[in-house]
Design a protein around this nucleic acid. Sequence first.
DNA 1: GTAGCCGATGAGAACGATTGTCAAACGCGC
DNA 2: GCGCGTTTGACAATCGTTCTCATCGGCTAC
Lengths: 135, 135
Amino acid sequence: MQRMTRQRSAVADVLDAVEDFRSAQQLHEILRDRGEGVGLATVYRTLQSLADGGEVDVLRTADGESVYRRCVRRGHHHHLMCRVCGATVEIDGPSVETWAAQMGAQHGFEDIDHTMELFGTCARCAAEGHRREGS
Amino acid sequence: MQRMTRQRSAVADVLDAVEDFRSAQQLHEILRDRGEGVGLATVYRTLQSLADGGEVDVLRTADGESVYRRCVRRGHHHHLMCRVCGATVEIDGPSVETWAAQMGAQHGFEDIDHTMELFGTCARCAAEGHRREGS
DNA sequence: GTAGCCGATGAGAACGATTGTCAAACGCGC
DNA sequence: GCGCGTTTGACAATCGTTCTCATCGGCTAC
Ligand SMILES: [Zn+2]
Ligand SMILES: [Zn+2]
Ligand SMILES: [Zn+2]
Ligand SMILES: [Zn+2]
């Protein structure tokens, strides 16, 4: 039902090559630079289908843009992302999971789901920033 | 520095009257229905300044729309929202805050910030759903 | 191999929430 | 009441994302 096309594998390749979270538009540019032109709409469609299949993680930045990344960890997990360069660390917080379920039950809610992401400035970007300030 | 205008207090009044999270556009409609017409741009501006001042909480729905609500709790806190009816409970997770800071430090990140929201089906909506299924 | 079905593609238009523009309106301290 | 500087609002602009639809091209059946 899912055909293997040049575009689809090109997008998959880029996702394999890139480590950090990138927006659809950034991925589109990377593809163009690689000479493997892929229509923007197709990039969006492919990312969406990959996300639906759980093959990439999606999260929304503070300004509402969706960013995508092929994650190492398979199951449910969370992220600590640098808000400057996009560098990401995968983390999981078992305590958070149980706490969420607890809170839900406590207030009579069922089917508890949760979103949680951490944002910060990574060591490298922080150094960069401090250098600029200090000068 | 902050002038009290008819529009500003109209928005504040609506926020006081409404319990659940509502989008800027919904609030704009409510204002129109009340006969207290306020420009959409002004609604956005007012909500933003209220949010900056910590007088309303903002969060983004799954489809990327910002929703606003005057919260009882003043400081930093999180929400457990019914994904069916929008009913919201304010909660705070001291353990989560410290855990977030810990994770950040552990990976060399600075200025850690975090987003976390719980979603579920409230008791009333769950009963509603079960009734429908069972029949 | 190849015909042909039907999903996939892409250029561009459309969309929708939000923000910017700027002249006119109006709080507010005098 | 005056005047200044903020606020307003109709409208345009922005921008990420989705839609449209004519065309292309995997894939399968023959
Ligand atoms: Zn991940
Ligand atoms: Zn960084
Ligand atoms: Zn709140
Ligand atoms: Zn409910």
